[in-house]
Design a protein around this nucleic acid. Structure first.
Lengths: 164, 164
DNA sequence: AACAATTTTATTGCATCCAATTAAATTAAT
DNA sequence: ATTAATTTAATTGGATGCAATAAAATTGTT
């Protein structure tokens, strides 16, 4: 009853939909930063930043990747990856070499030192996970919702000049 | 049967726990960036970046805030907010003045122009929401899980020198 | 009052991120 | 074979984020 009237005299209220607390984007953005911050003390011991860490994660799993493939895995472009990979190379964790068959392609390869770093990192995921105020079930649920969010409309949906 | 043997000859496999796909942090980090990217075309029309947008959201709601309070709302510190607020001031959306009673405190105030910007922003949240590959129910669930994640252990848990 | 501790912003430096542009190599078309 | 289009990295410029430090004002203590 009295739909909205009375609530809102004349002082240009903030529409409900524009309130920070109503947004999905904000907790996503804030959580992401808080989690990265939470990783820092652990990653400092490895000499990695968070972005370098997830890059190494891909390298531990795949050993060799082009910059393009890395970008597809991490959803990052060369503007981010090029300087980051140069730093990982400086630290001796990867090498960067052009492919013989196609000089455009830069192949990133895990070094022995990079491989050994995995051993030092192996305890991190559990420590992080157990420090979250979420149950295992909630973590699984969150994981799947986030991947669902990443899967379709969010990305892609590029220009698409023609019909499907 | 054959628990794990055969899967893994001798070539230092990547432990499962270190795989990118097993992490919660990565989809969180990636989603956050993808969502911000998705906002860009809308926010470009308003002349705002994403961080400026959520700052304006707080200002639309509260009208006046100190930098410290803004930082608490947005989980950002002065290193980020100071230059950002100077830009919002340059664009004429807010003013920045010291409090008379305490010169340390900088009061950020929404201007008329800033207030009017809300009208242009009001359609954005719905457009963003409807472009997500999630149901309303899933969005609510995600929202609550993210806030739960933000609530406790994730932040805070500072040094805590004494007993509770 | 004088000094110490605290609070609040601002500054600095480093590492992303991303859009836009460039450059080099390769492939496709004529 | 040339030229045109495409692909892949690198570069550039603008805006964060954040840790660490500094600076100014205020508050608390003696």
């Amino acid at each position: 009853m009295n739909a909205g009237i009375g609530e809102n005299p004349n002082r240009e209220p903030c529409p409900d939909c524009l309130k920070l607390g109503k947004q999905l984007c904000f907790p996503l953005y804030a959580c992401s930063r808080e989690i990265v911050k939470k990783y820092k003390p652990y990653l400092d011991k490895l000499g990695l930043t968070y972005t370098q860490y997830i890059t190494m994660m891909v390298m531990w799993e795949r050993r060799q990747m082009s910059v393009k493939e890395l970008g597809e895995c991490l959803l990052l472009d060369s503007g981010t990856l090029t300087p980051l990979l140069k730093k990982l190379e400086q630290k001796g964790f990867v090498t960067r070499k052009r492919a013989h068959t196609d000089e455009r392609i830069l192949i990133v390869t895990l070094t022995e030192k990079g491989k050994q770093l995995a051993a030092k990192a192996v305890s991190i995921p559990d420590q992080m996970r157990s420090s979250l105020p979420l149950t295992e079930e909630e973590i699984r649920l969150l994981h799947s919702l986030l991947y669902k969010m990443l899967s379709k409309t969010v990305r892609g949906e590029a220009p698409k000049r023609q019909s499907p």
